[in-house]
Design a protein around this nucleic acid. Structure first.
Ligand SMILES: O=c1ccn([C@H]2C[C@H](O)[C@@H](COP(=O)(O)OP(=O)(O)OP(=O)(O)O)O2)c(=O)[nH]1
Ligand SMILES: [Mg+2]
Length: 413
DNA sequence: TAGCAGCTTTT
DNA sequence: AAAAGC
DNA sequence: GCTA
């Protein structure tokens, strides 16, 4: 494993094609990158040289408005539109807690607007400016103007009901989503104590019980230093099992965030010596339980010999740290690049780059970039296609013509 | 007017 | 198949 | 709720 500071690395984006839909990204990417060097980040890639896949790039169809792939933004300067962003986030939160199918896409759209709004450097003051924002149409522009004028949004006031607040509280329980939350509300439950009191009748699932038990701890984000300490312990244990194992800390930690919602770990092993990590995760989990690092399992891998496995559980920094969500993803070594992209996120960045891949005739998932994917008329996947790239992040970015983005740049915000 | 990422696990 | 999650 |  390699401990690497957050150094710059690759720098040439894919290709300079004629009418590339992502032109805007290119120059910007080359533009200034931030300091933010403070933290060490476990990465890799740096070492895995991998001579460039010569960015193939067939004709690329039109595509634009990949907000989440948009140019890196300054980190230090605080956004002049923050107050607008905050209100739109409130609205998004309301839509998220609803269950209608249109609400899903209102959230989708608000994500675009919020993303664009947060990377725009000028203060929005006119409706024309509001309309220029990616994903902002007449309705959203009106809302933005209302926020500018009054500092409030009537729509939020109207929707900020008891039901919304209670359901948000319930959905904070791990494994409780909008559906279940509203169901419980409909049954008359209003507080976590109500849930606890009626846990028999409402038949909490196993994971919901764990989520309820640790409700307060799991609500909190993990300070970066604590995430790092937990990672060190787990990595150390992993290395005693196999000194050639590779363990990375992923998710928001790899993106450099100061707090993390959970701890996301990636486990793999270079098999060139003929040995793989098959069976290793299972042993690792046993050790971590013995050490008191893991306390509760949410999802255990069904086949402990597979190279790809996902573990989800709860643990702590022993002996008495707060309870934290811990995910460990084991992957075949040759899928490391695709897995790094996936597990680094953020989720909107992933959706954006996956959509881009699709528009270019590929399909990107946590295992690799595929070509020749069979789809039905509605775009639903029928056949897997053939693997195009998966070993390094850069290789995949290059094929897609996406300029290199450091983990800390792969974010909404 | 169709499409909005792609996948796994649990119930 | 729906719900919840990454 | 927006856009190609
Ligand atoms: O819907 C999702 C959720 C997550 N991910 C990927 C990106 C994400 O970065 C990673 C880890 O997920 P997690 O939920 O832990 O997000 P995070 O980015 O680490 O943020 P947080 O600090 O809340 O954990 O998995 C997706 O691709 N799609
Ligand atoms: Mg995370």
């Amino acid at each position: 494993m390699t401990l690497v500071g957050e150094g710059r690395q690759p720098q040439h984006g894919g290709t300079e094609t004629v009418k590339d839909p992502l032109v805007e990204l290119y120059d910007e990417a080359a533009a200034e990158l931030e300091k933010e060097q403070s933290s060490l980040i476990i990465t890799d890639e740096s070492q895995d040289k991998i001579p460039e896949a010569p960015t193939s790039q067939l004709e690329k169809g039109p595509a634009k408005g990949f907000a989440c792939l948009a140019p890196p933004q300054e980190e230090s300067t605080q956004n002049p539109n923050q107050y607008i962003i905050d209100k739109l986030k409130e609205l998004r939160s309301i839509y998220e807690s609803k269950q209608g199918d249109t609400d899903t896409f209102k959230v989708f759209n608000l994500n675009k607007v919020i993303g664009d709004l947060s990377r725009v450097k000028h203060k929005i003051t006119t409706r024309a400016q509001a309309l220029k924002l990616q994903g902002s149409g007449a309705k959203t522009a009106d809302k933005i103007m209302e926020i500018i004028a009054t500092g409030e949004l009537q729509r939020i006031q109207a929707e900020d009901t008891e039901e919304y607040r209670v359901c948000k509280l319930f959905a904070g329980i791990y494994d409780v989503g909008a559906k279940r939350a509203h169901q419980w509300y409909g049954m008359g439950l209003r507080t976590l104590e109500d849930v606890e009191k009626h846990k028999e009748e409402i038949r909490l699932t196993r994971n919901q019980s764990i989520g309820l038990k640790y409700y307060n701890d799991l609500q909190e984000r993990i300070p970066r230093a604590e995430a790092s300490a937990i990672f060190d312990k787990i990595r150390e244990t992993a290395m005693t099992l196999d000194g050639n194992a590779t363990v990375y800390i992923m998710g928001s930690y790899r993106r450099g965030e100061q707090t993390c919602g959970d701890i996301d770990l990636l486990l793999t092993r270079d098999p060139t010596d003929g040995i793989t990590h098959a069976g290793m995760l299972h042993k690792l989990l046993d050790r971590l339980h013995e050490q008191g690092i893991l306390t509760d399992d949410l999802v255990i891998p069904p086949d402990n010999r597979a190279l790809e496995q996902k573990y989800m559980g709860v643990g702590r920094l022993p002996p008495d740290g707060k309870m934290r969500r811990i995910d460990i993803l084991a992957i075949p070594y040759d899928q490391k690049g695709a897995a790094l992209i996936y597990f680094t996120g953020d989720d909107l960045f992933n959706r954006s780059i996956r959509l881009l891949a699709r528009k270019k005739g590929y399909s990107l998932n946590q295992r690799g970039l595929y070509g020749g994917v069979g789809r039905d008329t509605k775009g639903k996947k029928l056949s897997e296609g053939t693997i195009i790239a998966s070993k390094t992040e850069k290789e995949i970015f290059d094929v897609l013509g996406v300029p290199w983005r450091e983990p800390h740049e792969r974010r909404r915000k």
